[in-house]
Amino acid sequence: MSTKHDAAETLDVQGENCPMPVVKTKGATDDLQPDEVLEVLATDPGSMSDIKGWADTTAGVELVDQIESDQDGEDIYKHYVRKTE
């Protein structure tokens, strides 16, 4: 099954709090090939602002999309980050 934005990898940081979603997203994008997209699944509401801030400021990555959804009554935040170089 192909994921949204054809993500090459998925990182699950559900249940983890600041600063782990950003720190682990950085680690996971390091392992990507250029132009590949990483999907990040988080439950930390702060990840919406934090991952955007990180992606906008950091060279070599670009924020493709952020989706807030409800899954069985719990808020899930999905982030899509592309490695650009």
Binding site: P19, K26, T57
Partner: peptide, 11 residues
């Protein structure tokens, strides 16, 4: 520790 690990993620 939180600021340091975050800044490292920023490169």
């Amino acid at each position: 520790l939180i600021l340091a690990s975050t800044a490292a993620a920023f490169g």
